[in-house]
Structures are given as C-alpha cells and as structure tokens.
Amino acid sequence: MSTPDTCVRARAEIVRLTSGINGLDDSIEGGFPFPSVILVAGSAGTGKTTFAMKYLCEGAKKGEQCLYITTLSEPTQWMMRYAMQFDFMDPSYFDDQIVYMDLGDKLRTMKPNEILNVIDEKIAEVMPTRIVIDPLTVIGNMMGGDYRQFLFDLTNRLKNWNAVTVVTGEVQPNELYPTEIAYAVDGIILLLLSDEVVTRRKYVEVLKMRGTNHATGRQPIDISRREGIIVLKARF
C-alpha cells in the first residue's frame, strides 16, 4: 500500500483540545489531552469560572457540543449576567452548543449513585466534547463520607466518555489543590493569588498534565474583559 509523501505520521499521537486560554496552550503542547479530566484549582476570585467559561466558548466557537454542569443552583440568567461581561461570550452559544445543567437541587435530594446516573444521562443526551463541572468541591461539602468513592466513580465514567472535562475546585488561600480529587485527574492547573508589595498578583501553574511535556513554574496572568484569562509573557 503506497502513501503520499506528505503523509509521514504512523504513530498514534495524543489528540488535544485547545483550552482557549491565551498563552496556556503553548505550555501544554497545544492543549489538553483528549479525553481527560482536568482539575482547575484556586481560591476565591482567582478566575476558575472564567477559565471554565472560556474553555467552553472555545469549543462552542468551533461547533463542538459542550456541557456546563453547575453545582450552585444558579439560574442560567444569573450566570449569564456575569459571563456576558466578556467579549468572548456569545449568548447564542447557549441556544445550541453549550447545554447548561443545574445539579444543585439534585445534590440535596439524591444519593451519590443517582447523581452519577443523572450526569451520565445528560452526557449521553448531549454527547459533549467539552464538559465543565463548576465547582466540584461543593459536592464534597454536601456528600460527606461518600465523596471519595463518588469522585472515583465520576472520574472513571468521565474518562470512558470521549470528552475533556474541566472540574473546578475551590481551595483555602493556604491550600494548593483539593487533595481528594488530585489523584484521580489527568491534569492539575493552579490559579494562584500571591501577596506582593502593595498588591496581589495572579498566576497560573501547570502542576500535572499526563502525556504532556508541560512548562513548569508560575506564569503571571491577567483577566481582561476582552479575552478572559491571558497568560502574560515573562517580562525582564
């Protein structure tokens, strides 16, 4: 069997989904490994939801199906009210490409297995390429003792589905990431606030990204209305 000269790749290469975060993809060989589960961890105000929204809009822009699962019981319009401040957000994405699912009420009334089934059914219905669960750590607060088993089952199911799932995790200012989920995910991205002279600066750090030769160390970020999170180039 002959192949054209332009065709030279025989090896299976990891498919990657661009994050949409300006400057981040260069640090992770072009994007998140597909499929995978990525934890985006940070304390309050570090930009976790902005990160997640930009990631979904990047997919919607390309015509991909996306699923946004909120654990906060926020009505769509409440979330949209803030998200619409960003230029990258197009409300028409929510007509078709981005499906919004509120898990908040179910967390109060359902057992862990039932919650998994509800998520599974929604994923089967939407067949998304990109999924966000924001914030995952709320589930831990409500679930108590079953949380670890739930996380194990959830990440297992998400990995079998062909999607890149971004889960956000809220941490205390002195914590790096929620340890109970870290072992089960394929990638960990930290969004950090650092006290510096008369100000606080924001940083991003790729702590773990399986199958990826990723950049190490903290990189400064900015959050702008136009692009959301931007990884700033090092300035000397």
């Binding site: 002959s2 054209p4 065709c7 025989a10 290469e13």
Partner: peptide, 8 residues
C-alpha cells in the same frame, strides 16, 4: 490527524 492510516 492520521493521514497515513487514512491512506492505508
């Protein structure tokens, strides 16, 4: 992504 396999 995998034009060699595609051609085969």
């Amino acid at each position: 992504r995998n034009c060699m396999l595609y051609e085969a």
